[in-house]
Design a protein around this nucleic acid. Sequence first.
DNA 1: CTGAAAGCGCTAACAG
DNA 2: CTGTTAGCGCTTTCAG
Lengths: 336, 336
Amino acid sequence: MATLGDVAARAGVSISAVSRVLSDAPDSRVSAATRERIVEAARELNYRPNFAGRALKSARTQVVGLVVPDITNALFTELMHGAEDEATERGYTVLLGRSDDVRPGGEVIARLIGEGRVDGMALQVGDAVQPAGLRDLLTTQAPIVLVNSSNPGHVGSVTLDDHQGALIATRHLLELGHQRIAFANGLPRSFTAKRRRTGYKLALAAAGVRVPKAYETRIGYTVDNGRTALHRLMALDPRPTGIVVANVNAAVGLLGEARKAGIRVPDDLSVVTVHDSWTAENTWPPLTAVKMQFYTVGRTAVRSVIRRIETGETSDEVITDPPPELVVRESTAPPR
Amino acid sequence: MATLGDVAARAGVSISAVSRVLSDAPDSRVSAATRERIVEAARELNYRPNFAGRALKSARTQVVGLVVPDITNALFTELMHGAEDEATERGYTVLLGRSDDVRPGGEVIARLIGEGRVDGMALQVGDAVQPAGLRDLLTTQAPIVLVNSSNPGHVGSVTLDDHQGALIATRHLLELGHQRIAFANGLPRSFTAKRRRTGYKLALAAAGVRVPKAYETRIGYTVDNGRTALHRLMALDPRPTGIVVANVNAAVGLLGEARKAGIRVPDDLSVVTVHDSWTAENTWPPLTAVKMQFYTVGRTAVRSVIRRIETGETSDEVITDPPPELVVRESTAPPR
DNA sequence: CTGAAAGCGCTAACAG
DNA sequence: CTGTTAGCGCTTTCAG
């Protein structure tokens, strides 16, 4: 790989002149002719600035970490795209990491920041992460922004309007005429589950509808969790006529299980989910869903991290624009 | 962040002594007492080696790039896990990148390698990449290993046994008694599509079954491509009684579209797909699939890249162990 | 057994 | 306008 020195030698100038020209300092103080020679030499040698050299000198990597619990998840894909787009526009690169439930990201983050691999991080912790696990992160001075989590301390945060999402989903069933509306929610300690829960409850309360306590399950967001929720809810008496599922993956599992149990959707049971993804379009019947703006979350999170890196400012943001949007497909209908 | 100098000062020794101890050189030539003091000081200061400093000095990052066309894709998830597991075991980190069809990874790769961000790369190009786009990569001396692609030059490669996968899928339908077996394949220029095609053809030939030419579509691997394939195949006369789909995402789309068209699976039509993923379990009916070993591909690819980095050896490998495995679910049955 | 010193590629302050 | 130089944190050779 060509270095600044190689380019300088070829152009017959000093290293610093090359550096000034190629790192396009606004004030490179170089004559047009010299600049020309330098640029030409760099092109010929296919020069690329060495990452380590630059990072070592400047103590900046221009990299932000994005750590999510599960890269698999179709939802995070949108988020990652948003993060990448924002980063690229601002001259940053995104480094993708995984935080599983065991190590709540603490180890990964400490490494990435501690070793100087990234300048800052956007972090979404898994559902099952205990608040205690998060506490360590907050003591850090590092530029960390929490995504779709609570904000228990002095780090910034970006969250979806989960409350509104669940409310819209629930209202959809109410408007179809359902009264016995159940809620297949995430784990009790999940931050997003708490917020979705209030949306569900508020919608019911606003309509003057009361449901048994057992109508809410709090099992989790996975496909299998959805399967379990279906069984638990359908064992109740009276059976619900509609279910709001707090997560699209769980909804896919719930729908499959309903099918297996001979429960017809939407004839016997309406299902609406919070979140949308390509998988929701391809179930049978296609799932009615409330589309949440994950792309915007990604963009906003990275913007927030970069602001934190560059200016030190911290902020807590809720994505309300564009708002959650109901996408009606075929899994919901009026109750019989 | 604490540096070697900080640790040295605290331990009252020289920087080089600290370096020797903490980078656990096998022969650190340091007394037990000194070593103890150094380790203790490092712990107290929460020392972490600076990535840039180390990389600059050693011209090694201990990072391998993994570039895939679409991080979304459930299949690549397995591959990424395999890659990560292998990398971690060998003291490397994985940097994830995306190669879309427009820039066949060329730009991304040139940057990552040229700037010294990674020591080597495992690269899967998209379906739609023209061979010409690949040629540039082959001139490179960089440690690149192609994944699930052909090997048109002197870079290494790791591929699945696509031939065998398609053959097993086709044979499954034959054994159920189908004769009119169609094949919803990827684009003609896709390397994997070519290999799957030979498996399909061989299985038919071995059984002495002949089908019309139009029974093979070569539209692509996406969900929408699968939908299109369904329509095209069902417009034929005589209709096929079974379809082998070359990709699980396309199979999901094809299945959904069959449903919409009132074609009952498996009563009117059997569907079997190459690949397996969680989405295949959650369609209705659940998809019979040939499970391909993406996890092993990931592991092997990273192992191959690292070998290339460390020893310069190049190899071309086909994953045959474990072999592709038929997972029978409910989308296949004997023809009526 | 331990330390001094050079140098990886780059930027930036300073000198000419 | 252009060049010299110090130093970012680390590894490694060479001296002690």
